[in-house]
Design a protein around this nucleic acid. Structure first.
Length: 525
RNA sequence: GAUUCAGUAGCUCAGCUGGUAGAGCAUUACACUUUUAAUGUAGGGGUCCUGGGUUCGAGUCCCAGCUGGAUCACCA
């Protein structure tokens, strides 16, 4: 009767009108749990002294006794045998089976804890704590013989049921929209998803440890900027009320880190969340993470050495080997990586030597190679288009592409021996750019001229040209030591190292169009 | 932005040339004190994404829209 009452009550409040049958039943159960004098959401802590993984790895293998254990987790499945039941709970480390026997959790005459609470009122998805001891069942399953059971949190929404047998998975939730919008559910029911994010953190920690061991300083620089600099991209614009000025979300942190090198730090790095107001697809999210590092008194050759050492170390940390499966390919991150100049690369894949060509000739080459280019782009961009169309995709194994044209690298030092080039490299892996680095331009006169070139390009209609940052120029005028800098796309690196083809699978909460609920829809109509 | 595929029960999916909306799991009730995709018996559960149109009749055909995926273009 209580159930009927609560149903009517909830129905009257309107909000609950959209509840499905199972959600209504769970709310009725919640009410009945309260009627038994049990708090479905207790405040006190539940002390845990072991984990599913701990038991699974040590009980059988090491013959370690697990007595008086205390463990908590979410109920994932229940097999009710009448006066005893098996259920599987999942904690942060994995799954473990429970053996719940009525006369063991209800020692006296009152069997309501088992017959009513456990059998009738608990559901898959509820979080419980149990105490007991570990044993092996007849069928050989390591299990916990439960002596005490406590409800820690009642779940009001039915959890999608994923079943398994002999390593085969049944009814797995693969709907991308469901998984990204309700990542919390995805994490509960798809264990490999958790692995990806654990690896992501391991990867970041590896980089941090590697740089910290070398004495580089992790820093924070502004995300809200008055001039969005350091990259060519459309920024998100916002407004600061009390200053009454437009502000931009950062598109890169490069210019700030270089200011810190001017300020006397030898090595600084930052995991920079960048924001770009551009298209979204499987390799682009509006916010993404780039690790940028700047080290004084070094050059780009040194940075290549450092980077291949780092990337190799990441592969080893995550996989125990330098060989990583990516799609249907094996990528070997064993250092050293191949190094190819951009002109050599273009010569290799097109047969054309463009090293001495001017803008008009380059346009002819593009035409011959059937590459569509806009009329307003300059020489450097033309070369970049040729490389992007004909070369980039060929570099599956890690390769440094070096020595870019000066026109497309306005923050990079001119090449020490080759006129018209700069000391820059990109690390290509699986046909995509993973890192971008250079000997930083520290000549303030040259930098001013480069910015002015960018301003001219902007006038020609190149909407990706950079703004002039006068404070950055002022900093350079005080003197910046020769410096090597690099930016590594963390999301892309995680995608490769975890074999995920979509950026949405390496971000906990990828950007999605906001959901519209039914109520709002009606109000709008 | 273009092309294309998809949206049906809490979840995974059927639903043919248009004719009363289906299955498995989950859920409810009962049975079962070592099961494991537990089992057996009996039930309940639907805005077929939304809105128009064609038709005697639309989950199905047509148009528009929403959301997501894939491919392409741009970007990292």
């Amino acid at each position: 009767m209580a159930g009927v009452f609560i149903f009517l009550h909830l129905f009257k409040t309107g909000y609950y009108m959209e509840l499905n049958e199972q959600e209504i039943i769970r709310r009725q159960k919640l009410q009945e749990i309260g009627n038994m004098g049990i708090n479905a959401y207790p405040a006190e802590l539940f002390e845990v002294n072991t984990s599913a993984k701990d038991i699974q790895t040590h009980y059988e293998a090491d013959k370690i006794e697990f007595k008086n254990i205390s463990i908590a987790g979410r109920i994932m499945s229940v097999r009710d045998m009448g006066k005893a039941a098996f259920c599987v709970i999942q904690d942060a480390t994995g799954k473990i089976q429970l053996y719940v026997r009525r006369d063991d959790i209800c020692k006296g005459e009152d069997k309501s804890l088992y017959d009513t609470l456990f059998k009738k009122l608990l559901d898959i998805g509820d979080i419980i704590g149990v105490k007991g001891y570990v044993f092996t069942t007849k069928t050989g399953e390591t299990s916990i013989h439960v002596e005490e059971l406590t409800l820690l949190s009642k779940s009001l929404k039915p959890l999608p049921i994923v079943k398994e047998k002999d390593g085969e998975t049944f009814d797995a939730v693969t709907d991308a929209e469901f998984r990204y919008r309700q990542r919390y559910v995805d994490l509960i029911i798809n264990p490999q998803v958790k692995d990806t994010f654990v690896k992501r953190t391991q990867l970041v920690n590896t980089i941090r440890d590697f740089y910290n061991a070398k004495g580089y300083l992790e820093v924070d620089t502004p995300v809200l900027q008055a001039i969005p600099g350091g990259a060519a991209a459309r920024p998100f614009v916002t407004h600061h009320n009390s200053l009454d000025i437009p502000m931009y979300m950062r598109i890169a942190n490069e210019l700030y880190l270089k200011r810190l090198i001017v300020g006397g730090f030898d090595g600084v790095y930052e995991f920079s969340r960048n924001f770009r107001n551009e298209g979204m697809d499987r390799t682009h999210n509006p916010e993404f993470t780039v690790m940028e590092l700047y080290v004084a008194y070094k050059d780009y050759n040194w940075m290549m050495d450092l980077t291949e050492e780092l990337i190799e170390k990441i592969a080893l940390t995550l996989h125990g080997t330098t060989e990583v499966q990516v799609g249907d390919k094996i990528i070997d991150f064993k250092a050293p990586f191949k190094r190819v100049t951009m002109f050599d690369s273009i010569k290799e894949f097109t047969g054309i030597d463009i090293s001495n060509m001017e803008e008009a000739e380059l346009r002819e080459v593009c035409k011959k190679l059937h590459i569509d280019v806009a009329g307003n782009i300059g020489k450097g961009k033309l070369i970049d288009e040729i490389f992007g169309a004909k070369c980039e995709g060929n570099y599956i194994q890690p390769t440094f592409i070096t020595d870019y044209p000066v026109e497309m690298s306005p923050l990079t030092k001119k090449h020490r021996t080759h006129a018209g080039l700069v000391e820059r490299f990109e690390l290509m892996v699986n046909g995509k750019e993973l890192a971008n680095a250079y000997s930083e331009l520290n000549d303030p006169i040259d930098q001013r001229e480069r910015f002015e070139e960018q301003a001219k390009l902007m006038e020609r209609g190149d909407d990706e040209a950079m703004f002039i940052d006068h404070d950055f120029l002022r900093a350079l005028e005080y003197g910046m030591p020769p410096t090597a800098g690099i930016g590594i796309g963390i999301d892309r690196l995680v995608m490769i190292m975890t074999n995920n083809p979509s950026i949405q699978d390496v971000l906990f909460f990828p950007q999605m169009r906001p959901e519209v609920n039914h109520q709002e829809k009606e109000e709008n109509n």
